[in-house]
Design a protein around this nucleic acid. Structure first.
Lengths: 241, 241
DNA sequence: TGTACATCAGTGAACGCGCGTTCACTGATGTAC
DNA sequence: TGTACATCAGTGAACGCGCGTTCACTGATGTAC
């Protein structure tokens, strides 16, 4: 293992022959170090401008060592997408646990989101950054995962009694709107100064209000019967006009 | 002017001494060519991974010529933000023109958005790409502009009779939600295959539904009296529970 | 209108640097017997 | 348990390349008189 004098070199995975640790376990650790190094380097740049040498240096190995773990940067990026969404799915599971009235469900959901953004800041930042930017392979992978999320949420919604007669299309519409609102909220939290709890409370308040406004619209929705097109002009909003 | 044999070299701004054209006008054209070249190079990468030499080459000038127009890539990026938002403000102006009932206002707004995304595809793509990614200076500039947008929309909303008694905070909440929905819709249109009108009609339908659902919530909203905090638990949703 | 000089958009050579990838290697860990 | 060999994570030199930026330049356009 190389002694790298550089400041930004991550603590080396020093071989300690005295302590028993398998070769494959050490390999796993180095792989982890590469992923972690990449996540941290994304502070104020996008994945597309990250170099293989930088990531290797930051993980404490020589550039050529990188290839023992990944084919190239794109493969590492896809591994980061996997890792990040494992985190997000964990969040969804805890969010599903509670069963409450609308107001409390909204509050609990936003609170869970905020907590997870703090606990897995680097994963959320990575997803937010690469969601719309740069490397096409990453963008596609992330959009697929988000679409999956939205679909699962639509299924959850379908089980709620007051949404029982909604068409699948309309359920997807709501779940998409909810997911977008949550994404937008997560991005706002990531952008807020980390040492400004007042700004964060503001963001939380606004997010709760947005979700509440959406919830208020639900009982007045006239479920469309199917995914049939051509219904233009048949329905009239009896809302404000 | 250099004869560049490269395929991706943009049509050179050939000096035609016979036709009268001022030096400053030709400079303006070259500047324009640089901006345009950068916008087009962003097809499937982010601004942060764009090189000065690439942009210059693509605009048909030598790398050193770049500095006659911009200090460096960041300054060019900020010029693109300016240019793009001039486009967007133009869109908003046309959107404000109509006065109709909710359903038609929604349909008209989405239609205007879709038309502008098509007409200024590169500008929208640039903003969508760089909104959350890469270069901090660009991200900040774009977020400021979007916040401005949202504030102007809030002022517009305040003029509507059925929103007369809403607090400024609540108006900003709605306008933020509307802007986010429009941003999300624009991104969906940009991502859809350009030769797939059915996919686009789907996106439009969903966007209209989202906006309608939000509009349906509006009359049931109980306006909060001020931006005072600490109202937690005082309000109960009478919505679904 | 003609001449002499100033301006300045674009040129082209040169620089040092970090990049991705190749290759033959080292030496600790793992395995067969 | 001990020995002989295989495996393979990480090394280090080397390559050709595109990068941003410097510099002195060219020659058409612009201006003063």
């Amino acid at each position: 293992m190389r002694h790298n004098g550089s400041m930004n070199a991550r603590a080396a995975i020093t071989p300690r022959p005295s302590i028993a640790i398998t070769r494959s376990e050490r390999k796993r650790q180095t792989r982890e170090a590469l992923l972690e190094a990449a996540l941290e380097l994304l502070e104020d740049r996008s994945f597309g401008s990250l170099s293989l040498r930088e990531v290797a240096r930051s993980a404490g190995i020589v550039p050529t060592g990188f290839y023992r773990h990944f084919d190239g940067m794109e493969e590492l990026g896809l591994a980061l997408v996997d890792e990040s969404f494992r985190t997000l799915r964990q969040m969804i599971r805890s969010a599903r646990a509670g069963r409450q009235d609308t107001t409390n469900a909204i509050r609990a959901s936003v609170a869970i989101l905020v907590r997870h953004v703090h606990e897995h800041r680097l994963h959320f930042r990575f997803i937010a950054r690469e969601r719309s930017s740069g490397v096409p392979a990453l963008r596609r992978a992330i959009h697929n995962e988000i679409r999956l999320f939205s679909s699962e949420l639509a299924i959850d919604l379908a089980r709620m009694p007051f949404l029982g007669d909604w068409s699948s299309e309309d359920l997807h519409m709501v779940s998409g709107l909810l997911v977008d609102t949550m994404v937008s909220t997560a991005e706002a939290i990531l952008d807020a100064a980390p040492d400004d709890p007042a700004a964060e409370r503001e963001i939380v308040r606004m997010a709760e209000k947005r979700l509440l406004l959406i919830a208020l619209g639900v009982p007045r929705w006239r479920p469309s019967t199917a995914a049939s097109g051509g219904e233009r002009g048949e329905r009239r909003a009896d809302g404000p006009s």
